[in-house]
Design a protein around this nucleic acid. Structure first.
Lengths: 246, 246
DNA sequence: TATCTTCATATGTCTGACAATTAGGATTTG
DNA sequence: CAAATCCTAATTGTCAGACATATGAAGATA
């Protein structure tokens, strides 16, 4: 692990990159302790501030964790699925909010990915997953439910569908789609949507999964996509109209 | 934006979280300049070290960028698709290498997601995408190609398929699947695979996309999945045998 | 043996200093 | 006057040293 003090890049960036490479390439393995800050200072011939900033960069990416005290230090962190989920959700949320992604594009991606779970979920969904879905459907039907709560329940429903596929890698990959895009869509469509219709489609999905019929699940998801898309376009059109004649 | 000095959490973590929240919630918008380090020190009533570590954490997540000089400072960064791609690839790679994900699980997720692109790609793939795929197929057939180069070409081929869907959100979501899992699979199967067979399947996929027939594309992908799975199992079995009788 | 104390070690934070970079204004020069 | 140059102020990057805080381990004590 070496750095170039004459490089224009910040030293802390270079040090972080060097350590990251060592982790990714397997030179440093999970739970292994990194040298102490003082040792890293000596190794890279830099001040402690610089080493610390490099370590904070890595900590921000969940690559390491630090512990204070006598036997403390920085340790290579086992990246858990949970941490990866939440990172993906933040990244997806920002990506969508900062890049002018059209409603159509986000909607298309979200449902295409979710349909990919349908065949697996139809085979593997457990009673637990079905129970979660039914419970969320029931909650969605309760009068007086706020829009926020309905949206959260909506996310939980789709989450159960995705998790039903019993593939943690897919659940991770879809975290962004479900937990970042769904709220975004809800935010756009909540004024216009019919809860009844959504609940009916959710029920159809749950029924299809219970019957383990993948094509029907996919069909219901496609219909939900179509409905969401129509809603989105309606809202957009209304907004454009409002802007044109205020 | 407030922090709690009596909290057990590190101050720099709290400050980073406060600023992150402000960005995600839209209080700070893209390209907006954050207060200078000195101002942030005063605002949070902490030392400059602490503020700087917080800013480095955010920089590591591409949430801000910093610039030196008179009109410099920290600015809210527009998270580009490219940055998001590379973050996803690193995360996916680590997630797979650190969490004992079975070959079957990774393979299943990867092809399920890629099949989700097939219908869109069959409709939208441009001549460019087809040309890329054909070029990669040609390269894959050249004798003397190293395993690394074959793997890279393999990734490029699948990447073109995914990009052919013309949906940047899907391309982003699939970056991890293609660029992290594909190399992993190649690493496992390269000793046993038949390049001819893979090339034949790639050609079948390219033909199907050229003819814009989604089902045939999906079928070819499924066959590729099946072949990859068989290979993986063979290799695993051979390894187990080698361990049992060395 | 069980509990308490002390200590060494490590990270977390603060202060002050200086270096490096950069934009913009002031000054000099043709 | 215009252009080039220099100067200056603002800002981040790095460093050194100090102290605060947390924590495990060894030693002292009941």
């Amino acid at each position: 692990m070496k750095i170039d003090p004459s490089s224009p890049a910040d030293l802390s960036v270079q040090i972080a990159a060097a350590i990251r490479d060592a982790i990714v390439s397997g030179q440093l393995i999970v739970d292994q302790r990194l040298p102490s800050e003082a040792e890293l200072c000596a190794q890279f011939d830099v001040g402690r501030t610089t080493v610390r900033e490099a370590l904070k960069r890595l900590a921000a990416q969940s690559l390491i964790r630090t512990q204070r005290g006598a036997t403390g230090g920085a340790f290579v962190n086992r990246l858990s699925f949970e941490e990866a989920y939440s990172q993906q959700i933040t990244t997806s949320t920002l990506l969508l909010s900062m890049n002018a992604v059209s409603f159509e594009t986000a909607c298309e991606a979200r449902y295409a990915l979710e349909r990919a779970c349908a065949p697996l979920s139809a085979i593997r969904r457990s009673a637990d997953h079905l129970a979660t879905m039914r419970a969320e459907i029931h909650r969605q039907g309760q009068p007086g439910l706020t829009d926020e709560a309905f949206c959260a329940s909506d996310v939980a429903f789709h989450r159960a569908l995705v998790d039903g596929a019993g593939n943690p890698v897919m659940s991770y990959q879809l975290a962004g789609a479900v937990e970042a895009m769904q709220p975004l869509m809800n935010m756009i469509t909540f004024t216009a949507r019919s809860r009844e219709r959504i609940i009916a489609l959710h029920s159809r999905i749950a029924d299809a999964l219970e019957a383990q019929t993948a094509p029907e699940t996919e069909a219901a998801l496609s219909e939900l996509e179509g409905y969401t898309l129509t809603l989105g376009r309606d809202v957009m059109a209304r907004r454009a109209q409002a802007r044109a004649a205020p």
